[in-house]
Computed example of a mutant assay.
Amino acid sequence: MGLEKEKLPLVIAISGVSGSGKTTITKYLRDKLHNSKILSFDDYDFAGPPDIIDWVDKGANYNEWNMDPLIQDIESLFTEPLNYILLDYPFAYKHIKTSNLIDVTVFIDTPLDVALARRIIRDFKNSPSENILIDLERYLSAGRRGYLEMIKTIKPNSDIIVDGTLEIHEIAYHLYNEILRWRKD
């Protein structure tokens, strides 16, 4: 690439289960960290396993995901005069190609019941109760295994683990200070 590492933006991957607060925290940090930009996993249509639960049951090989569009966007941001690139990204360092671009990973450690409640409030605000019940049945029959996979593999693979039950401003304050410390190292 030819760019000196000191001149590149600090790339911070923020992960956690669905409903942990990744997107909220990422946006909050973007507003606090001078000269930063967000890339969000959810904005891409990645080629990945057709059945996520089957993928989890077979050992969750994160390298099966084609992350090339995200990688290209991160690399293109390296040419911009940024201080930080914030990734709303669930894999931490587990995907080999993206791990080479990430400087620090954060895991928002939110209890599954809290994350599930937040997700239901977020996703089903104007939905009939039948949709909520269907989603809860899916969570119990299969989806919970995906959440547990993240706790088992992504959490211990992260540099910073923050309590997801704290208020947003408390999480952001803690992460802001940790990120500034990483920037100095």
Rank of each mutant, 00 (worst) to 15 (best):
L77A: 10
D43E: 12
S36F: 02
A13S: 13
A13K: 04
I179R: 15
F46L: 15
K94C: 07
L136Q: 05
R183H: 02
P90K: 07
T153D: 14
P156G: 05
P50V: 00
V106Y: 04
K94A: 13
D42R: 00
F91W: 05
Y28Q: 11
V114D: 11
W65E: 12
T105E: 09
R122W: 12
I102N: 10
R119S: 11
N157I: 02
E170D: 15
A142D: 14
S36W: 03
T110K: 01
P50L: 07
R30E: 15
T110C: 07
K184R: 13
P128R: 05
N61F: 11
F91E: 12
I96C: 11
G19P: 12
A92D: 05
N126D: 13
W65T: 14
R181V: 07
F107M: 05
E170M: 08
D42E: 05
K58T: 08
P69D: 01
I38L: 03
V56F: 05
S40E: 03
I102Q: 13
K184P: 06
Y44K: 07
L10R: 02
A117Q: 14
T110D: 04
L87Y: 09
R119G: 10
P128T: 06
E149P: 02
P111W: 06
I38A: 04
T26P: 01
A142F: 08
D45K: 11
I52C: 05
L3D: 13
Q72D: 12
R144Q: 08
S127I: 07
F41D: 10
N63Q: 02
I12Y: 10
L70R: 01
L10C: 10
V17P: 08
R144Y: 13
E149F: 04
G143Y: 11
Y44D: 03
Q72Y: 09
L116I: 06
I179E: 06
I53F: 01
P81T: 11
N66K: 00
K22R: 12
L133P: 03
G16M: 08
L8S: 08
N126Q: 11
G19L: 14
A172Q: 09
V114N: 04
L87K: 08
H95E: 15
I120F: 08
N126T: 10
D113M: 04
L116W: 09
R118E: 10
